[in-house]
Write a protein that binds this DNA or RNA. Structure first.
Lengths: 203, 203
DNA sequence: GTCTATAGCTGGATAGAC
DNA sequence: GTCTATCCAGCTATAGAC
């Protein structure tokens, strides 16, 4: 009933199954659906194990967040170092899983202080890396960064991607194709045609 | 203990107090904090009245959503009809209250089917009005709408505004000032300097 | 319209057997 | 490490007195 192995290596099966189940439940039914009993059932383990591995529920959420955050940092570093960093970043931030999970954490942070603190800390690190990476890239493309500072370019791209992701999550996609066309035209003007398909399976 | 009068006129005091309390609680502690007992205490009325006025809790959330949606439609119509519609729209969508409430409804919709359906329906109406309004406006300003379709312009503006609102809600504002400068420079190029301050007190 | 009381349920968290 | 049993709190929703 438990999964065979985690790719990390030395996590216990039950622990990993609980983390996976939590993420799955948050995505499919929202964070409020994550109760100790429900998540244990979804993971196929005993409810008592939630408290054995994580203590209070807060810590379970935090661990899911940290795991997902670490993955995002890795993927972002790859994107920034790739051949076509703007295309790679754009594809990355458009990933549906991250977006949907983000909405849940955003709302969760609203009434769990510890979660909010962790989100803020992570986002700061994440953004600083984006800004550093983008300044080099835009400078190399000859962009006038006094008119288009990397901070603004990055935020606009990110905002567009995540916002459309949020809308799509409740079935709305009015105007999305027009917006994607515009953004991709601008990226294309700086970086040429997309050569590799950066989109990949989520998770 | 109940508020004196609603501006609409003929709503009962207790009913209005419950709607206000629900919105307040959603903003301060998240939708999960809205329970019949809690919201009644916040409104200063008896918990039984929640069920008397709204039936099941879903309906309470829906009424708050409808009320806020109606207000948004009005304000948007005003903005589109104003002297400087781009500035007015930008100021409107940057309103913090709407953004934060939106995150809550987004997450709430994830596990309350009725809420999600209502959100989708409203958003469709809302966007269609935006697109219609903006096409006239951009055409009047001589914008090349094959390069910059109103749908894309609107979504990019909206995405930027709401995204920054979301980040601000957990204390993050890295790069926001740069982004605001860029957006406002672009608006200024089309519409000239902002003449009236469109920002107003929320609610 | 407002309040009390309560049925019935679900959840967080722990103690302790195995 | 895993599982059972259980305490206690808090919640939705309704019935019925006033």
């Amino acid at each position: 009933m438990a999964s065979i192995a985690s790719d990390g290596g030395d996590e216990s099966d039950a622990r990993t199954a609980l983390l996976d189940a939590t993420q799955r439940l948050m995505l499919s039914e929202g964070y409020a659906a994550v109760t100790s009993r429900r998540v244990a059932a979804e993971a196929g383990v005993n409810p008592g194990l939630v408290y054995y591995y994580f203590g209070p529920m807060d810590e379970l959420f935090l661990e899911v967040f940290r795991r997902s955050a670490a993955r995002s940092l890795e993927r972002q570093a790859e994107a920034l170092a790739s051949e076509q960093p703007l295309w790679a970043l754009w594809d990355l931030i458009r990933d549906q899983t991250n977006t949907a999970l983000n909405v849940e954490f955003l709302a969760l942070g609203n009434h769990r202080k510890a979660v909010m603190a962790e989100m803020k800390e992570f986002s700061l690190r994440f953004r600083r890396l984006q800004f550093e990476g983008l300044s080099t890239i835009l400078a190399a493309y000859g962009v006038d960064t006094s008119q288009w500072p990397p901070e603004a370019v990055m935020l606009l791209m990110d905002a567009a991607a995540r916002f459309m992701g949020e809308e799509r999550s409740y079935g709305l996609n009015l105007g999305h194709s027009h917006t994607i066309t515009v953004v991709e035209r601008l990226i294309g003007q700086l970086e040429g045609k997309r050569r590799t398909r950066g989109r990949r399976r989520a998770r």
